[in-house]
Design a binder for these strands. Structure first.
Lengths: 189, 189
DNA sequence: CCTCATTATCGTCATTTGTCTACGTTTTTT
DNA sequence: AAAAAACGTAGACAAATGACGATAATGAGG
């Protein structure tokens, strides 16, 4: 829980009191996952988000030709989930699978909504997180429509250097929307 | 203002009272723009969002090779702005230019924050809008990393058929991350 | 109605990226 | 330790897309 506390403090305008944080922490459930275990499978409705305390995961989907496409990569201090399924209660199109053994903190929809209502500092955090996510999405879109494979990789490596150590190249390639072969070629220069 | 009222009602759980809407409307300023006029230019800090009552716009940026890339297309009932600059007070990297004469309703950052604090129904609307935007971004990313030019166009045409009538092909091509030539070719089949 | 800018298309050629198969290495599992 | 799976690289070829110049069609503005 320490790591959640430190993480939240980086988002809000004033440090979170012990009392507030106790309340927040009480709405999360710790869980452990082994390597290659699924947090979510296609077709399920996901009613929680997971904060990653330790470990790494990826979110991907399988297209109509049977190919996997990595949508997100997650490590410590990231949130794993599917907002569409979470918000609209629809079956997810995604898989979320661990790439390493993981320790996570899970919060259900009910608890999240309750915290947002009853704990202003948590609500502030959620707003900031949304903002950050929205800005990051915009940048990823801009990069994907205007840059070559090489440029996208360089952007990625500059923005998320830790990820290069944590995920095999073919997953990063998939995340960038290119094949592992192309990435391998492009890196040789 | 009628159109803003109707639009907001589509997002919130209970219809917005006359009184609430009067308060909301009081925080917006109507404006008109001619064709090819700029709402935002690169380097400016934007401290407002614009709700489009009538007309069409595009947001784009110019890369280091001098090429334009369309990031967003907007028509009636869309919001034009740059969330990064708006939230972080940083100079924008984007241009927002009208493609048709426009009527818009402008809300400043201060007014938006005030409304969120003082008008619960407006706050609810903002949360829903964020959600919708987040889901749409995710889908656009998924499409851009996993689909061919043709598939991306088909997705786009299916999701936003009105846009095909409102924007010239080369802008749609740019939005999809392909050249106008490729789109023209791809459509011939 | 005329003019000029905008837009769409076409052909050719270059470049990028994908596909497939193979191979060697490393890592994981048994 | 042995076997199996996962991973990165390589080469040859195919397919998709970009770049460029030319031209025709369209539409807006005077």
């Amino acid at each position: 829980m320490k790591s959640l506390h430190a993480y939240l403090n980086r988002y809000v305008s004033a440090l979170i009191s012990e009392k507030d944080f106790e309340m927040i922490a009480g709405h999360f459930t710790p869980m452990e996952l082994k390597k290659k275990q699924y947090l979510l499978k296609e077709g399920q409705v996901i009613d929680f988000f997971a904060f990653i305390v330790k470990g790494a995961m990826r979110k991907y989907y399988i297209d109509d030709k049977g190919k996997e496409h990595v949508i997100n990569l997650y490590i410590e201090n990231w949130w794993a989930g599917d907002r569409e399924s979470f918000a609209l209660l629809t079956p997810s199109r995604y898989y979320i699978e661990t790439c390493e053994p993981c320790e996570i903190l899970v919060i259900t929809r009910e608890n999240k909504e309750k915290l947002c209502r009853e704990c202003p500092v948590f609500n502030e955090f959620i707003l900031k997180l949304d903002e950050k996510y929205s800005v990051a999405s915009q940048k990823r879109i801009a990069s994907s429509i205007s840059s070559s494979a090489r440029e996208r990789y360089d952007d990625f490596a500059a923005r998320y250097p830790e990820f290069l150590q944590r995920f095999p190249q073919h997953l990063i390639a998939s995340y960038l929307g290119i094949t592992k072969d192309t990435l391998s070629r492009v890196l040789k220069q």
